[in-house]
Simulated scan of single mutants.
Amino acid sequence: MRELSAVIRGKVQGVWFRGWTRETARDLGVTGWVRNLPDGAVQVLAHGTDQQLDQLEDRLWQGPPLARVTTIESRRTTTDTPLTDFSVRR
């Protein structure tokens, strides 16, 4: 299992980015979570295949209609820790 850890910056809070990310990840069959960060960014931790994570990262660049993504800082690792769903964390 592969793990994607990403921090998305730009206009990504207050534009339904977390809910959109949850729906997008679930559609792709990816598990993990998304949350807002105090500095205005959004953090994503996702588990899936490299192909699923490639698709998720491509879609994160687009975001929901009102979002404006300027940068994504991401890294991938291998993990054995299973996650069962994709959730929005507070």
Score class of each variant (00 low, 15 high):
81 T>M: 04
87 S>F: 00
34 V>N: 04
46 A>M: 08
26 R>V: 10
40 G>D: 03
89 R>W: 01
72 I>S: 13
32 G>P: 11
20 W>H: 14
61 W>Q: 14
11 K>D: 06
75 R>W: 04
43 Q>G: 03
81 T>F: 04
10 G>S: 11
84 T>K: 13
33 W>T: 07
55 Q>N: 10
58 D>T: 13
80 D>P: 00
47 H>D: 05
33 W>C: 07
27 D>P: 00
4 L>D: 05
43 Q>E: 15
67 A>R: 04
88 V>Y: 03
4 L>N: 02
55 Q>H: 11
74 S>I: 01
39 D>H: 04
30 V>M: 10
64 P>F: 05
47 H>P: 03
41 A>C: 12
38 P>V: 05
52 Q>S: 06
67 A>H: 10
67 A>C: 07
62 Q>H: 09
44 V>N: 10
45 L>S: 09
43 Q>F: 06
36 N>M: 08
6 A>Q: 06
86 F>L: 06
76 R>C: 13
13 Q>G: 07
40 G>F: 04
29 G>W: 14
63 G>C: 04
45 L>K: 12
49 T>M: 06
82 P>M: 12
80 D>F: 08
31 T>S: 14
37 L>V: 05
62 Q>V: 09
75 R>Q: 15
47 H>G: 07
88 V>I: 15
69 V>A: 07
16 W>A: 12
32 G>K: 12
31 T>F: 06
40 G>Q: 07
9 R>S: 15
79 T>Y: 09
67 A>I: 08
24 T>W: 01
58 D>G: 08
58 D>A: 15
17 F>M: 05
23 E>Y: 02
26 R>W: 00
61 W>M: 08
78 T>W: 11
88 V>S: 10
81 T>H: 13
87 S>W: 00
21 T>F: 05
